[in-house]
Simulated assay, not measured.
Amino acid sequence: MENLIMPTPYRLLDVKKVTDIEYLFRVEYPEAGNVKFGQFMQLSLPKVGECPISVTDFSATEGWVEFLIRKVGIVTDEIFNLHAGDLLPMRGPYGKGFDAIDIKNKNVVIVTGGSGLAPVRSLINHIYRNPEEVQSMELLFGFKDDSSILFRDEIINWRKKHPMVLTVDKGCGLDGECVGLVTEYVPHLKMVSDKFDDLEVVIVGPPNMMKYTAIEFEKLGVPAEKIWVSFERKMSCAIGKCGHCRIDEVYVCLEGPVFNYSQAKYLID
């Protein structure tokens, strides 16, 4: 009988500092072609534990996956002690990803708050490399301050091709142009109009950020069916057995983490 929770060790290829508290871990993963945008994997260490981490990018041709990890607990503390060449046991990928969204020939708006950029980075990079797949992409990122801005070099490249607003809660940000919450800038997005058939909105960030950002889009007339969110919750088993991620009758690890807002707005935890 197959053991569904048995991890497989994979070799750590690279560790790169992104901010003072977040590092990017690239892991050799020959099965990367099976990964979908927005999915997560369970990372584990023997005698320590395991934790769910979103796949922030992957390469099917080169055979690797990347994780943005913040040092916030027992498992992540130990992962930060690993170096290139060490083995990192993993299992997955799990969950419904952004492949649930039909982005073909659509205007795609992506709004993120803080580390919420990590789960959608692979989708953004895919559209950046394959712009012919969509009509257009517009980006709205919010960070606490300048020191918490993620993937600076990529952001600079993304904004060369796609309209972008980057805002910080306080300070001067990347270019010093925008201060405040992302909700303040939703009404000024170029793609928001009276016609929403070709629009898909993706929102990822803290729960309140996603809730109030979605409300701002609804105020503009965007139907809930055109809005997608990703629930970044603490999950334990990832296979729907432990119940830690359950909201009412919904198991986030199985039916999410990506949800259409028409369903997600009623998932109150």
Rank of each mutant, 00 (worst) to 15 (best):
I5F: 11
R11W: 01
R11T: 15
V15H: 04
V15I: 09
V15N: 06
E22S: 11
F25T: 01
E31S: 14
N34C: 12
Q39M: 11
F40E: 04
L45N: 02
P46D: 12
G49A: 12
S54R: 03
G63A: 09
V65H: 02
F67M: 07
K71I: 12
V72P: 01
D77I: 08
E78C: 12
I79P: 00
N81T: 15
H83L: 10
G85C: 07
R91K: 12
S115I: 13
P119L: 04
L123G: 02
Y128S: 11
P131H: 08
Q135I: 10
F143G: 00
D145E: 15
S147E: 14
D153F: 07
K160G: 11
G171Q: 07
C172H: 15
E177K: 14
G180H: 08
H188T: 15
H188Q: 15
L189A: 04
V202T: 02
G205C: 06
M210A: 06
Y212T: 03
I215C: 03
I215D: 12
L220G: 06
V222K: 02
K226P: 01
A238L: 05
K241L: 15
C245E: 00
I247P: 00
P257H: 06
S262H: 11
Y266V: 05
D269E: 06
D269M: 09
